[in-house]
Design a binder for these strands. Sequence first.
DNA 1: AGAATTGTGTTATGTTATAACATATCGCTG
DNA 2: CAGCGATATGTTATAACATAACACAATTCT
Lengths: 182, 182
Amino acid sequence: MYYKPFVQFFIGKRSYMELKPEKSVPARHDHQNCIDTALQEAERVLEDKGARMTGIRRLVLQYIWRNHCAVKAYDILGFLGDRKGSAKPPTVYRALQFLQDHGLVHRLESLNAYIGCPYPAENHNGQFLICNDCGTVKEFTTPEILRAVDIAADTQGFEVSHQTHEVLGRCQDCREQGNGLD
Amino acid sequence: MYYKPFVQFFIGKRSYMELKPEKSVPARHDHQNCIDTALQEAERVLEDKGARMTGIRRLVLQYIWRNHCAVKAYDILGFLGDRKGSAKPPTVYRALQFLQDHGLVHRLESLNAYIGCPYPAENHNGQFLICNDCGTVKEFTTPEILRAVDIAADTQGFEVSHQTHEVLGRCQDCREQGNGLD
DNA sequence: AGAATTGTGTTATGTTATAACATATCGCTG
DNA sequence: CAGCGATATGTTATAACATAACACAATTCT
């Protein structure tokens, strides 16, 4: 039995299919557009909720969107330090918490790192393909998985509040380039 | 369209369905049996691989199996300290690494904690229902999810090496008891 | 018994994250 | 526009999680 796959991939605001990448993603698209779009989206989402996009939060979000790799809290801290003189951990963690609360970034539990969300308006739990070689992260979602989790939870009388689903491995580009040992 | 759910739940070595729990799981079954079975399984698995079950590793595994909640590394450290005089972090982390390498425990990334695996013989990535109230963790697996991930990865030319899938929420027992606010 | 491998002890430090309280800024309302 | 409450940021300190590096001990193989 064959299931027609229904899978959406998100990289910035466009579907992955349009890109047909051969090299690492950041090099293959107008990434400034990703950044701009993400920031505009963010402003809009926050506006709608009556939440504030402050200077620090904007800087953090920009830094997170500088490419499609996950970002560490202490790297953000260093970045802020460069810009704002002195920044301490709570500054970063507070900004991250805020951005997460509003769906603008996801935390990748298996990396202790953070990635921008291309679909902040839709409240969701992300699922991620994470390349161990180049660090590129792609968010995706499939109805099959969501439904399967619902079934499993329902069967147990389990009420889902949050989930994290992270798939680690090697992306196509890195496989083709023969990074690592293959 | 209705899909007959095919979901297996693991609690110790028996299917969840047999148990029909009303209270928290550890109180509702012969947990000593879980521990004994898990330890015997572990000895057997390691034997088959020519790996050694040492005193420390056994203690750590026993402690992890003391109930169906995830265990923190530094709690294990305290436990070892009680038994062995002085134990330092590397002792615990080395034991955990070994047990993970041999499929005897899973790490729960969203909790920074560890849980015993009821199916160490089968190499797999676990999926987990984690109760935020009582801490009980249930491993489960559904073919639908595995297949959906395979499709998503294949579509991308992504080679999967490992995945983590953790579902947080509230278990049936806690919902019925009205723990928290409901 | 001796060599090689594997496991453990120990010191030190690296990395990730939060508590607690002080100060500043924003946005409203009178 | 002053004053107030709410929100945001600054600051100090420390908690929580994890590993590097090297010394020593135990096991196992020959």
